[in-house]
Amino acid sequence: VLHDLRQRFPEIPEGVVSQCMLQNNNNLEACCRALSQES
């Protein structure tokens, strides 16, 4: 999931992506929604 998200959101730091995964229990859809608001 992390690799997938890193490719979709290259401009977001890995730490932020990891934190997002923890908050969303590694749910790819939820992470994508959260990160798209972030970027």
Results as ranks from 00 to 15, higher is better:
residue 15 G to L: 10
residue 14 E to P: 10
residue 16 V to I: 02
residue 15 G to T: 15
residue 38 E to V: 11
residue 24 N to A: 02
residue 11 E to V: 03
residue 22 L to C: 06
residue 21 M to K: 07
residue 38 E to F: 14
residue 35 L to G: 03
residue 2 L to T: 09
residue 14 E to L: 10
residue 25 N to T: 02
residue 28 L to E: 05
residue 11 E to H: 10
residue 30 A to P: 03
residue 10 P to M: 02
residue 16 V to A: 07
residue 20 C to W: 07
residue 36 S to V: 07
residue 15 G to H: 15
residue 7 Q to E: 13
residue 20 C to D: 13
residue 5 L to K: 05
residue 6 R to A: 08
residue 36 S to E: 14
residue 4 D to A: 12
residue 15 G to R: 13
residue 10 P to D: 03
residue 33 R to N: 07
residue 19 Q to F: 07
residue 12 I to K: 04
residue 9 F to K: 05
residue 23 Q to V: 09
residue 32 C to H: 09
residue 19 Q to M: 12
residue 26 N to V: 02
residue 33 R to A: 13
residue 2 L to W: 10
residue 18 S to L: 15
residue 20 C to H: 04
residue 1 V to E: 13
residue 32 C to L: 08
residue 18 S to F: 09
residue 33 R to L: 09
residue 11 E to N: 10
residue 36 S to Y: 05
residue 35 L to V: 00
residue 1 V to M: 15
residue 33 R to E: 11
residue 8 R to E: 06
residue 17 V to C: 04
residue 28 L to T: 03
residue 23 Q to R: 11
residue 33 R to D: 08
residue 31 C to W: 00
residue 36 S to A: 13
residue 22 L to F: 09
residue 27 N to L: 00
residue 4 D to W: 13
residue 33 R to C: 06
residue 18 S to Q: 15
residue 37 Q to C: 10
residue 18 S to P: 00
residue 26 N to K: 02
residue 20 C to E: 11
residue 23 Q to P: 02
residue 23 Q to D: 15
residue 12 I to S: 01
residue 31 C to Q: 02
residue 14 E to H: 14
residue 33 R to H: 10
residue 10 P to V: 00
residue 7 Q to G: 06
residue 24 N to Q: 04
residue 6 R to P: 01
residue 21 M to L: 12
residue 27 N to Q: 06
residue 15 G to I: 10
residue 19 Q to R: 14
residue 36 S to L: 09
residue 26 N to E: 05
residue 32 C to R: 04
residue 34 A to K: 07
residue 34 A to T: 07
residue 10 P to R: 00
residue 37 Q to G: 12
residue 20 C to A: 15
residue 9 F to A: 05
residue 26 N to C: 07
residue 3 H to C: 09
residue 1 V to R: 08
residue 2 L to K: 01
residue 31 C to Y: 01
residue 31 C to P: 04
residue 30 A to N: 09
residue 39 S to T: 15
residue 32 C to T: 11
residue 16 V to S: 04
residue 38 E to H: 14
residue 28 L to H: 08
residue 37 Q to V: 10
residue 14 E to W: 00
residue 16 V to T: 10
residue 2 L to P: 08
residue 39 S to Q: 13
residue 13 P to K: 05
residue 38 E to I: 12
residue 26 N to G: 10
residue 27 N to W: 01
residue 26 N to M: 07
residue 22 L to H: 13
residue 31 C to S: 05
residue 10 P to S: 04
residue 33 R to F: 08
residue 36 S to R: 12
residue 6 R to E: 09
residue 20 C to V: 15
residue 4 D to L: 14
residue 21 M to S: 03
residue 35 L to H: 06
residue 28 L to A: 05
residue 36 S to T: 10
residue 18 S to M: 15
residue 4 D to R: 10
residue 22 L to A: 15
residue 26 N to W: 02
residue 9 F to Y: 12
residue 37 Q to P: 05
residue 11 E to Y: 07
residue 34 A to N: 01
residue 12 I to W: 03
residue 9 F to W: 00
residue 7 Q to F: 04
residue 18 S to E: 15
residue 12 I to E: 04
residue 37 Q to W: 07
residue 34 A to D: 09
residue 22 L to W: 08
residue 20 C to L: 11
residue 17 V to E: 01
residue 28 L to P: 07
residue 33 R to T: 10
residue 39 S to F: 09
residue 22 L to S: 12
residue 11 E to L: 06
residue 12 I to R: 02
residue 19 Q to N: 12
residue 31 C to D: 14
residue 36 S to I: 10
residue 15 G to M: 11
residue 33 R to V: 10
residue 8 R to H: 01
residue 18 S to G: 06
residue 27 N to P: 01
residue 37 Q to M: 13
residue 38 E to L: 14
residue 15 G to F: 10
residue 17 V to D: 04
residue 1 V to W: 07
residue 3 H to E: 15
residue 15 G to V: 12
residue 14 E to A: 10
residue 3 H to L: 06
residue 21 M to E: 03
residue 31 C to G: 05
residue 39 S to P: 12
residue 18 S to R: 15
residue 25 N to L: 03
residue 33 R to W: 08
residue 20 C to K: 13
residue 4 D to K: 14
residue 37 Q to H: 10
residue 12 I to T: 08
residue 34 A to W: 06
residue 32 C to E: 09
residue 10 P to E: 02
residue 22 L to T: 13
residue 37 Q to F: 06
residue 3 H to N: 10
residue 13 P to L: 00
residue 32 C to N: 13
residue 4 D to Y: 11
residue 18 S to I: 12
residue 17 V to A: 04
residue 10 P to K: 00
residue 21 M to H: 01
residue 11 E to T: 08
residue 19 Q to K: 14
residue 35 L to P: 05
residue 10 P to C: 00
residue 9 F to E: 03
residue 27 N to G: 02
residue 21 M to I: 10
residue 20 C to I: 14
residue 9 F to N: 04
residue 38 E to Y: 14
residue 13 P to E: 09
residue 38 E to N: 09
residue 31 C to T: 08
residue 13 P to R: 02
residue 39 S to A: 08
residue 39 S to M: 11
residue 20 C to Y: 12
residue 27 N to E: 09
residue 32 C to F: 04
residue 8 R to V: 00
residue 20 C to M: 13
residue 20 C to G: 08
residue 34 A to P: 01
residue 30 A to R: 07
residue 17 V to Y: 02
residue 21 M to C: 07
residue 19 Q to H: 09
residue 38 E to A: 12
residue 15 G to K: 14
residue 8 R to A: 05
residue 12 I to M: 10
residue 30 A to S: 06
residue 3 H to W: 09
residue 19 Q to P: 05
residue 21 M to W: 03
residue 16 V to P: 00
residue 22 L to M: 13
residue 10 P to H: 00
residue 9 F to G: 01
residue 24 N to W: 04
residue 26 N to D: 06
residue 26 N to F: 14
residue 34 A to H: 10
residue 24 N to G: 01
residue 7 Q to R: 14
residue 4 D to P: 01
residue 3 H to V: 07
residue 18 S to H: 15
residue 16 V to F: 03
residue 3 H to A: 14
residue 20 C to R: 06
residue 31 C to E: 06
residue 3 H to P: 05
residue 7 Q to P: 00
residue 32 C to A: 09
residue 37 Q to D: 12
residue 30 A to T: 04
residue 38 E to S: 11
residue 13 P to M: 05
residue 18 S to C: 07
residue 25 N to C: 05
residue 3 H to K: 14
residue 33 R to S: 09
residue 4 D to G: 03
residue 15 G to A: 14
residue 18 S to A: 14
residue 25 N to M: 05
residue 3 H to D: 11
residue 10 P to Y: 06
residue 24 N to P: 00
residue 17 V to H: 03
residue 14 E to Y: 08
residue 23 Q to I: 03
residue 30 A to D: 08
residue 5 L to G: 04
residue 29 E to L: 09
residue 2 L to H: 13
residue 27 N to R: 04
residue 38 E to R: 14
residue 11 E to R: 06
residue 36 S to D: 12
residue 16 V to M: 11
residue 37 Q to K: 14
residue 14 E to T: 05
residue 35 L to W: 01
residue 9 F to S: 04
residue 31 C to K: 05
residue 17 V to I: 15
residue 35 L to A: 02
residue 33 R to Q: 12
residue 39 S to G: 12
residue 22 L to K: 15
residue 34 A to V: 10
residue 7 Q to S: 13
residue 24 N to K: 01
residue 15 G to S: 14
residue 14 E to F: 00
residue 8 R to K: 13
residue 30 A to Q: 09
residue 30 A to V: 05
residue 2 L to I: 11
residue 28 L to G: 04
residue 34 A to M: 09
residue 18 S to D: 06
residue 37 Q to I: 10
residue 23 Q to H: 15
residue 4 D to Q: 15
residue 31 C to R: 02
residue 27 N to D: 13
residue 2 L to G: 04
residue 1 V to N: 15
residue 2 L to V: 05
residue 21 M to R: 01
residue 24 N to E: 07
residue 17 V to W: 01
residue 5 L to E: 07
residue 25 N to E: 08
residue 27 N to V: 02
residue 7 Q to I: 11
residue 15 G to P: 12
residue 34 A to I: 12
residue 28 L to W: 12
residue 14 E to G: 01
residue 22 L to G: 08
residue 24 N to V: 01
residue 18 S to K: 15
residue 38 E to M: 15
residue 32 C to I: 15
residue 38 E to P: 12
residue 13 P to D: 08
residue 14 E to I: 08
residue 35 L to C: 04
residue 10 P to G: 02
residue 19 Q to G: 07
